[in-house]
């Protein structure tokens, strides 16, 4: 038996909004530790890694490890039926081929449930090697979304360059070029509004705008985003989900042939 009750169905909805552009379907791996998901996009350029800790749930019970393959468009339809203040309880029997979502309004005045068919997905897990990153940049998630959106108008790629002076986002296209430089801020009492750069070595890497834009769909999950860069290694874009876990995106760089 699997049962997980989350105080805010809106949080799960935000997680779903953050991954459904990249993934058509995905397997949710449920264990004592919580719910994990790892999946590549269709083009195998990026990898999504979601971790929701069991202790972030109001109630969590997982008698046996369970993998639930779900179509994310269908799952979105289910969550569109939940109210913004509803709690959600996810339930599945061992070896079941369906999962049930129950939405409860705060005062119990409305309770709805939706049963959804599960899918058998043959998804391979990738091993992610430990990396010593050259630069780790923390910045407000809204600022990152803004920069990616602005620069995407001009080119297909964004170069992220990090030195001890700051981080620079650049693009070029048919109509010209664009650059956004962010300096490290000293506003340390408001960490989620600060730009914090931890640089071991300068690094400059090129990434697809389209994917970066998809990742910024996670902006409503967290005020802050962390970018980890290292030469010849995928970029990591990480959003912490307060009290629940994290959502990480890995993006392969564009490299000179």
């Amino acid at each position: 038996m699997f049962e997980a009750r989350l105080a805010s169905s809106a949080t799960f909805k935000k997680v779903l909004d953050a991954i459904k552009d990249l993934l058509n379907e995905a397997s949710f791996d449920c264990s004592d530790a919580g719910i994990q998901l790892q999946a590549m996009d269709n083009s195998h350029v990026s990898l999504v890694s979601l971790n929701l800790k069991s202790d972030g749930f109001e109630k969590y019970r997982c008698d046996r490890n369970l993998t639930m393959g779900m179509n994310l468009a269908s799952l979105s339809k289910v969550f569109r039926c939940s109210g913004s203040d509803d709690t959600v309880t996810i339930k599945a029997q061992d070896d079941a081929d369906t999962v049930t979502f129950m939405f409860e309004a705060k005062k119990q005045e409305k309770i709805s449930d939706y049963e959804m068919k599960l899918m058998n997905l043959d998804q391979e897990h990738l091993g992610i090697p430990e990396t010593e990153f050259s630069c780790i940049i923390k910045l407000p998630s809204g600022e990152f979304a803004r920069i990616v959106r602005d620069l995407s108008q001009f080119g297909e790629s964004i170069v992220i360059s990090c030195t001890k002076e700051g981080v620079k986002f650049s693009t070029q296209g048919d109509i010209g070029t664009g650059n956004v430089k962010l300096a490290q801020t000293n506003n340390f009492d408001k960490e989620d509004q600060s730009v914090i750069i931890d640089m071991q070595e300068p690094v400059s890497l090129t990434f697809s705008c389209e994917y970066l834009n998809s990742f910024t769909k996670a902006t409503p999950l967290s005020n802050q985003v962390t970018l980890s860069l290292c030469d010849n290694v995928p970029l990591v874009v990480e959003y912490q989900i307060p009290d629940l876990g994290h959502l990480k995106y890995y993006l392969a760089p564009k490299i000179e042939e």
Binding site: H44, E124, L126, S157, Y250, A252, K254, E256, E257
Partner: peptide, 14 residues
Amino acid sequence: KLSQKSITSFFKPS
């Protein structure tokens, strides 16, 4: 000319 690498050229099936 830049070419988009695949994530599987960095991460291998575990």
